[in-house]
Lab assay of single mutants.
Amino acid sequence: MLDDRARMEAAKKEKVEQILAEFQLQEEDLKKVMRRMQKEMDRGLRLETHEEASVKMLPTYVRSTPEGSEVGDFLSLDLGGTNFRVMLVKVGEGEEGQWSVKTKHQMYSIPEDAMTGTAEMLFDYISECISDFLDKHQMKHKKLPLGFTFSFPVRHEDIDKGILLNWTKGFKASGAEGNNVVGLLRDAIKRRGDFEMDVVAMVNDTVATMISCYYEDHQCEVGMIVGTGCNACYMEEMQNVELVEGDEGRMCVNTEWGAFGDSGELDEFLLEYDRLVDESSANPGQQLYEKLIGGKYMGELVRLVLLRLVDENLLFHGEASEQLRTRGAFETRFVSQVESDTGDRKQIYNILSTLGLRPSTTDCDIVRRACESVSTRAAHMCSAGLAGVINRMRESRSEDVMRITVGVDGSVYKLHPSFKERFHASVRRLTPSCEITFIESEEGSGRGAALVSAVACKKACMLGQ
């Protein structure tokens, strides 16, 4: 009897593995994704193909990295998701002549009506938060230079001027797309009239992360975010950046690689679950690469896999709870928690219980395998993109072996128990001629924006502006 049951459990697990095998990517698959990513990057950089390229390769006008001589107080704003952060950054000489960066910050959550109302409502709310922060720190009387981390696709015309191309991540505030974001912020500050600010720089969160990590390690020339969304930036040779005049030196390019796949480059790798996630998203047909990796989508992918296993009578005796059938019910943090389970399955059992399920031991094991399959594919897909960037940098610099540091931020990278190990191992397999160091950014977005502002202020002083 026991043997029969054991055989049935083994057969069930084997069927589960057959279904989950769809998520496995072979090294040849990853090399294919990497080569296609490089081709799209090239198209994004070139003037004649930029418009139709899915990977936009947006110039950021960040050319210099901090040298350690900029000092002063800077205000930093960070808008990239449902939370908005205001930070005071003091850049100065530390002990023994070292450079020191001290920060104080406060988080504000953005109400739904500000995210989806008008641009005026959104930026009025942001300036209200700045006003509140300055009151708390008794700094209303000071006109501070301000660095703005704005983590949406922007076409820069200068370091302090950028046109919002399109909202992502659930934002829909009308009247912002096609307009200068810094102008919208300046107008809102003017409307309030109770404080003055000098907006000197606007950067993407990947750029802010790279600059913040450069402060720790001067070989950091790539910034990457794996959180709600997924994106990367890197220092490109100016001669390859056709959208900006000049051939000397390097400029940081914001790849906006989340949109890779929007022209069909990933079609052969998309599964039924991916198509369902895409169809029910706020932007169907867009940001397809990001939807395979980002935390906004990972939990939902797992939920759809679990429903398939229920329908195949391989999980929960073929019956799903009402909660499990509800879109968004299986949160991405559950994926991390399930994979963090120590082996007694308590954590998995508790999560499934909150979803109205009474799982068996085998159910718990199957749910864990589903989570591992989805998150491992995410790590491997992400590795193909980064390997594409790094191999490109090595080739354009004609280096036999390139040493490089990548600064990384984002909740999936930082909080998932195995993502970074799987990701690092896969990147290294795909970049055999590179020695890569990964560092995690601390308060990256805010500190990085302030350091970019410090560079901009120093330049302005040198130019006598």
Rank of each mutant, 00 (worst) to 15 (best):
5 R>H: 05
6 A>S: 05
10 A>C: 14
16 V>M: 15
20 L>P: 05
22 E>C: 14
24 Q>L: 08
26 Q>N: 15
32 K>L: 10
32 K>I: 03
33 V>A: 07
33 V>H: 00
34 M>D: 11
37 M>L: 10
38 Q>M: 06
39 K>W: 13
42 D>T: 15
46 R>L: 07
49 T>D: 12
50 H>C: 03
54 S>Y: 05
59 P>R: 03
60 T>S: 08
61 Y>E: 02
66 P>H: 06
67 E>V: 15
71 V>K: 15
78 D>A: 01
80 G>L: 05
81 G>P: 05
81 G>R: 01
82 T>P: 00
85 R>D: 02
85 R>V: 02
86 V>K: 00
89 V>K: 04
93 E>L: 09
95 E>R: 08
101 V>S: 10
102 K>P: 04
103 T>N: 08
105 H>Y: 10
108 Y>P: 05
109 S>G: 04
115 M>R: 13
123 F>C: 03
126 I>R: 05
127 S>G: 14
128 E>A: 08
132 D>E: 11
133 F>D: 00
134 L>N: 01
134 L>G: 01
135 D>G: 05
138 Q>F: 06
141 H>D: 07
145 P>A: 14
148 F>N: 00
151 S>P: 02
152 F>T: 04
152 F>A: 02
153 P>M: 01
155 R>V: 05
159 I>H: 00
164 L>A: 03
168 T>Y: 02
172 K>G: 03
173 A>S: 02
178 G>I: 04
181 V>S: 01
182 V>M: 03
183 G>Y: 04
189 I>V: 07
190 K>P: 05
191 R>S: 09
191 R>I: 05
192 R>M: 03
193 G>H: 11
199 V>M: 00
201 A>T: 04
202 M>K: 04
205 D>A: 00
210 M>W: 10
216 E>H: 14
218 H>K: 09
218 H>M: 14
225 I>W: 06
232 A>M: 11
234 Y>T: 00
236 E>W: 00
244 V>L: 08
244 V>T: 15
246 G>Y: 01
248 E>C: 06
248 E>A: 10
249 G>E: 13
251 M>Q: 14
253 V>Q: 05
254 N>Q: 04
259 A>M: 03
259 A>T: 07
263 S>K: 10
267 D>T: 07
268 E>C: 12
270 L>D: 01
271 L>H: 11
274 D>T: 01
275 R>M: 12
281 S>F: 09
283 N>T: 06
283 N>L: 05
285 G>L: 14
288 L>E: 14
292 L>W: 08
295 G>H: 00
298 M>P: 12
300 E>N: 12
304 L>A: 12
308 R>D: 14
309 L>Q: 15
311 D>K: 14
312 E>H: 14
312 E>L: 13
315 L>E: 05
317 H>P: 07
320 A>Q: 02
321 S>G: 15
326 T>F: 13
331 E>W: 01
337 Q>C: 14
337 Q>A: 14
339 E>S: 06
339 E>T: 09
342 T>G: 10
343 G>T: 11
343 G>K: 12
344 D>G: 08
345 R>H: 13
349 Y>F: 10
350 N>W: 06
350 N>F: 15
358 R>G: 09
361 T>Q: 12
362 T>N: 11
363 D>A: 08
363 D>F: 06
365 D>L: 12
366 I>T: 09
369 R>A: 07
371 C>M: 07
371 C>P: 05
372 E>L: 06
373 S>K: 06
383 S>L: 01
385 G>D: 03
387 A>T: 03
389 V>N: 02
391 N>F: 10
394 R>S: 09
395 E>M: 09
399 E>R: 12
402 M>P: 12
407 G>K: 02
413 Y>G: 03
415 L>R: 08
421 E>R: 11
423 F>A: 04
423 F>M: 12
427 V>Q: 02
430 L>A: 06
432 P>F: 14
434 C>Y: 10
440 E>Q: 10
440 E>L: 15
443 E>R: 07
444 G>T: 11
446 G>S: 15
446 G>E: 02
447 R>L: 15
448 G>R: 00
448 G>L: 05
449 A>S: 06
452 V>E: 09
453 S>K: 02
458 K>S: 14
463 L>S: 13
